[in-house]
Write a protein that binds this DNA or RNA. Sequence first.
DNA 1: GTACTCCTTGAAGCGCGCTCAAAGTCAATT
DNA 2: AATTGACTTTGAGCGCGCTTCAAGGAGTAC
Lengths: 146, 146
Amino acid sequence: MRNAGYTIRTMAERCGMTTHTLRYYERVGLIQPVGRARNGHRRYSETDAVWLNFLHCMRDTNIPIRELQRYAALREQGEVTSLERRKILEDHQSVVATQIEALEKAHAILTHKIENYRKIEEKLGLRGSSEAVETEREEQPVMVMA
Amino acid sequence: MRNAGYTIRTMAERCGMTTHTLRYYERVGLIQPVGRARNGHRRYSETDAVWLNFLHCMRDTNIPIRELQRYAALREQGEVTSLERRKILEDHQSVVATQIEALEKAHAILTHKIENYRKIEEKLGLRGSSEAVETEREEQPVMVMA
DNA sequence: GTACTCCTTGAAGCGCGCTCAAAGTCAATT
DNA sequence: AATTGACTTTGAGCGCGCTTCAAGGAGTAC
C-alpha cells in the first residue's frame, strides 16, 4: 500500500475542480499539506476527497474563500472550536436561504417574460428555427412540457 | 412641466445599486443613454426603473454582464428579436434552476453539519468556555510528512 | 464672493478566485 | 541517451464587475 492515494488530476476530476485550484486551495490553507509520493507528487486521501467536496459545494454557494479559511483553521484546532464553526455555518446558511429566495424570484420573472415572448411571437407569426412546435393551419392542440 | 425624472442618486437607491454602477451600466450599453436635465444631469424615467430592476434581479443570479449586453442589444431592435431573446432567457432560466438545486443541496448539508456540531457541543458540555478534547469526529488528515 | 453639494467625465485601481507560464524533476519508453 | 508526459515549484497574470480617483461644472445658500 505504499503508493495509495489519488493523484492531483484524479482528485481534480473527482471534485469538479482543476489541478490548479487544488494547489491553490492548499496554498491558501483551505486544505492542509497533502501527503506526497516518493517522487514528491501529491497523493490525496479519501478524507481529502470528502473535505474537498464540501469546499466545492460551499463555493457553489458563493461563500468567500476567506470564510472557508477561517472555518478550515478552526477545524484544525479540534472539537473545541465547535461553537465558532457552527456559527459560521449558521450564518452562511441564512445567506444561502436568501440566495435561494432571490433565485426563485428571478426564476418566476423569467417564466413570466418567456411566456410574454411566446405571445409576441404568436402575434408576429414567428417560428423558432430548431425547437419550435410546428403549427399548421389546421393544427391540433399540443401539450408541451415546461 | 414634464421636467420630471429621477436623479441618479434617487434611482440608485431605488434599484439597490450605486450611482457608479448606474453610469457603468450606461457606459457598457446595458441601458440606453439616459435623458438629461438642462444642466447635463441624468434624469431617469419610470421605464428605466423597470429595466434596471430587471437587470439587478438578473445580476443577482450571476448572469454575466456580457449576456445582458446581448439581450439589451436585441431588445433595442424591437419585437423581431423575440425568439433570440426568449432563447437567452430560457437558457439562463435553466442555469438558475441548476443554481437553486446546488443551493438547496448545500442548505441540506449545512443543516446536517450544524446538527452535528450541536451534538459535539452537548458531548463536550460546551457553552463558550474551552476544555480541550482530542477526538475529531470529522475527517482529519493523516498522511502528513515531515 | 465663498462654500457646499451634487453632478459630470475618463482613466486607473482593486478584490476575488483562479489560471497560466517557466523551469525543473522523475519514471518509463524508445 | 533522448524523448515523452505527468507531475513539481514559484510567481506573475487575468477576467470580471465594479469602485475610486482626479478634475471640474452647475446650482443654491449665506
